[in-house]
Design a binder for these strands. Structure first.
Lengths: 116, 116
DNA sequence: CAGTATCCAATCCGATACTG
DNA sequence: CAGTATCGGATTGGATACTG
């Protein structure tokens, strides 16, 4: 999650922040359904384990993309939400989504040609 | 390099194609310096081993982002270049770079606040 | 509920040596 | 030159059981 070509590639740092495993589905889920609890995220991000979800949430919190709110109740309640910094990613994710919609078919086609 | 949240996140597939490890520095190098040989890439992507470089080039070739040309000479000469499909990534990488330039300082700051 | 602790499997990766 | 083969080590991840 760190060595990605270093100095040579000017977007390596950004990629490490935004696209390490699981971060995008988590951000996406928070964006789609808004502020939610740990258990909600666990349910909505298919296949993730509590260990890994915790790791990624901590990373996102540390990077300032997600905010965590702890309510000292019984049982405890913790809520996560996207910060303004995290929300500033929306156009970028939009571009990514658009590029995929346009070009994933070409990629699939290239794969079939290569494999076949 | 495959499970990233699946159905729940619409850009998971694109991310797997574009941002698996080493792919961005390789694409960047090809974009910056144009068509070049295996050894050139090896030198310009710092820290990559020939094994991994081969793996990633094959993946990029399979996905249609990079084209490989083999010249049957002695010694053999192989050249790699970006395809039009690969070149279509430029605006996207530009946006990524711009987002990073604007926001990486905020991320660094958030990290210092979290760690300190 | 919201995690943490533990263990194990899979993967990845770097280094190196070798080949057509 | 442009890879491939092999190996060991490090990291990552899933499953599960447990705790304040």
């Amino acid at each position: 999650m760190e060595i990605r070509g270093l100095e040579a590639c000017p977007i390596a740092d950004v990629i490490d922040v935004l696209f390490s495993r699981w971060t995008t589905p988590i951000l996406w889920g928070l964006h789609e359904r808004g502020r939610q609890r740990f258990g909600d995220l666990e349910r909505h991000v298919p296949g993730i384990s509590p260990k890994v979800l915790t790791q990624r949430l901590r990373q996102l919190e540390r990077d300032g993309l997600v905010a965590r709110t702890y309510h000292a109740e019984v049982p405890p309640r913790v809520e996560y939400e996207i910060t303004p910094l995290g929300a500033s990613l929306e156009p970028l994710f939009g571009s990514l989504s658009a590029w995929g919609a346009t070009n994933m078919p070409s990629i699939e086609k290239a794969r079939r040609a290569y494999d076949g």
